[in-house]
């Protein structure tokens, strides 16, 4: 059964638009837990019968919560990609859903995938300020599940996953940061080495690879064996504090030479105002500059509208709004139109 209305994809997830004291730099925080049921093979090696058994016990439990359930198969590839662009499921699950079940709560701040790579992949997102509370809730629900099914663990390794990289604490914590000033002022190397000292790696916010120039950077705890969730939360909080400090300092410095910053922002504003097509490669760069401009009070566009575009301007979201097939040029054209409309630039220009 597919419970998702297509309207969902015409706006960004509500949780993503919520703002807190730190969202000028840390856009959101996320905890992803993985669990595998003891006594069963992992997904790749399991028989169909085993899979059905594991699936039904986990899905039955989760369905008691606030989730809508759908089998991955009932989603179109385009819908799966859109969920990946909204951080609801991983890029990997979107590309290779297999026979998994996907569960998503009303505002998409919580989701779970059953029997994809892990028996259970569960995610919660929030502002940085609420991360610790939301993580504890996630762990509590996993503990209550364990009353029925023991999770697979190993005395030295911790929670087990088919992938050695995911073993250990059974959870990983991430933050998505917006670091335009740190990157322009060459402070990123410092942030990088601080992250490294905590066993935290940085990845592209969507695909998970590395992209050096991207001002939107996701930091993820990657050293998980021999660690517990509290360690990881503490590491991320300390790193976030340091990142916020460095980025705000860099922004202040840029502001001292305000004509350069203003010029940069107004050029980006001019580009969105008049461009007929905006391609994917330039899209995030423009958006980042506008976001910086909005945070610094240079342009009068609400932050949540810019952040909304960050989701709607992604390839699958924009493609889904183009009527006659996924023609790259039409998608880029739609993106340009949508940015003008959503950011309220049309009215400003009148």
């Amino acid at each position: 059964m597919n419970n998702f209305s297509e309207d969902k994809f015409f706006s960004a997830p509500q949780w993503f638009l919520q703002k807190s004291e730190s969202t000028d730099v840390v856009m959101f925080a996320e905890a992803i837990a993985i669990r595998n049921v003891a006594g069963y093979s992992f997904c790749l090696a399991m028989s169909d019968d085993e899979r059905e058994e594991v699936k039904s016990m986990l899905v039955d439990f989760l369905r008691d919560g606030d989730y809508d359930t759908t089998s991955a198969k009932s989603l179109t590839p385009m819908e799966r990609m859109m969920f990946a662009e909204r951080w609801t499921i991983s890029h990997k699950t979107a590309l290779h859903p297999g026979a998994s079940e996907i569960l998503i709560n009303e505002d998409e701040s919580e989701s779970a995938v059953v029997c994809n790579i892990e028996h259970l992949w569960m995610r919660t997102v929030s502002t940085l300020e609420n991360l610790s509370m939301k993580t504890k809730l996630l762990l509590q629900s996993l503990d209550s599940m364990e009353l029925e099914h023991k999770w697979a663990t190993h005395p030295q390794i911790g929670f087990l996953s088919p992938s050695p990289a995911a073993c250990g604490a059974g959870i990983s914590i991430s933050i998505l940061c917006h670091l335009p000033a740190s990157i322009i002022s060459n402070r990123f190397a410092r942030i990088h080495s601080t992250a490294e000292s905590y066993g935290i790696k940085f990845v592209d916010p969507w695909i998970g690879g590395f992209d050096m120039g991207n001002p939107f950077v996701k930091f993820t705890t990657s050293s998980l064996v021999g660690r517990n969730p509290d360690d990881l939360l503490a590491d991320i909080s300390m790193l976030a504090e340091e990142i916020i400090r460095i980025e705000r300092l860099a922004r202040e410095e840029m502001n001292e030479n305000s004509i350069v910053l203003e010029d940069k922002v107004m050029r980006a504003f001019g580009l969105v105002s008049y461009a007929k097509v905006i391609e994917m490669w330039e899209f995030l760069e423009i958006l980042s500059t506008l976001r910086l401009g909005a945070v610094m009070g240079i342009i009068d566009v609400p932050l949540h509208k810019i952040d909304e575009m960050m989701v709607l301007g992604q390839q699958a979201h924009t493609a889904s709004m183009v009527d006659d097939g996924p023609d790259p040029l039409k998608i880029a054209q739609k993106r340009a139109e949508m940015m003008r409309e959503k950011l309220g630039i049309n009215e400003m220009l009148e």
């Binding site: 050695p164 250990g168 050293s223 064996v225």
Partner: peptide
């Protein structure tokens, strides 16, 4: 494991040596 989680990561855990037996027995 050491590549992903750092050298010596397995020694960080002084834990319940019996859990593994349990997993196998289950």
């Amino acid at each position: 494991l050491e590549h992903f989680h750092g050298r010596g990561c397995l020694k960080r855990n002084v834990s319940i040596a019996l859990r593994k037996d349990l997993t196998t027995l289950q």
